[in-house]
Amino acid sequence: MSVLSLQSVSLAFPADRDSHQTRLVLDGVTLHLASDEFIAVIGRSGSGKTSLLNLAAGFLKPTSGRISVDGVDIAGPDADRAVVFQDDALYPWLNARDNVAFPLKLRGIAKRERRLRANGLLAKVGLENAGAKNIWELSGGMRQRVGIARALASEPRFLLLDEPLGALDALTRARLQQFLLKVWSDSKTGALLITHSIEEAILLATRVVVLAPNPGRIVADIPASFGRQLLAGKSLPELKDTPEYRRLHDGLTGLIHADAEEDAA
């Protein structure tokens, strides 16, 4: 089992172009993600959610603090931490299959083997017939599934999901949440999901982390078990009707909301 660790991580950006003043985006964030966990990070805009993911991915370097995988400090982005982007970031000059095979190509795997593995991954995300399709011929939901298959192709230990379902319509989103849950439980990778949706966080995650803004910091880290219950076959309406679900939902809403009032005051 691997662990991705952020220890007392702070991040400051220059406040504006010409001054030497800085704005603190994240303040002393400590978070450990084990490879059998699914952590959802919620928080209002400006709470540093995406910065947190960019730090974990290695796209940004922390101003202070340590980021490590199994005790080894990360030097930057690497194949053990694959990212799925909100705007899918699929390459339009490659068809769906070649997009999925892209991480394999980077590793110098032969063309036939790449094709085979990409087809397998496409089947896994329910797109076995879409391999030859151009990216722009796919719907938003299909594109995100290709994006997830591509991330899985690099056989990461951690999946970093930057609001991947944020731009989808409600129905597609609900379907892809279940799909994401299944992919996560099949692939044995740790997942870090950035999301705006409290419901999505509760339903998918084994832990829900709440970030408060100005500066971004963790104000709650709450275990959840609804994802496992969903996987065990419980129906969604049944789950949402339980007192546990409602209590968690209300509690998280309160946390995010309270913080908003404090801001306004």
Binding site: A57, G58, F59, G76, P77, D78, A79, R81, A82, V83, F85, D87, A89, Y91, F102, P103, L106, R107, R150, A151, A153, S154, L160
Partner: peptide, 13 residues
């Protein structure tokens, strides 16, 4: 696009 480059970086390019 920065995401295109970041995606490749996160796959170890």
């Amino acid at each position: 696009p920065a995401d295109f480059i970041n995606a490749a970086r996160s796959f170890g390019a």
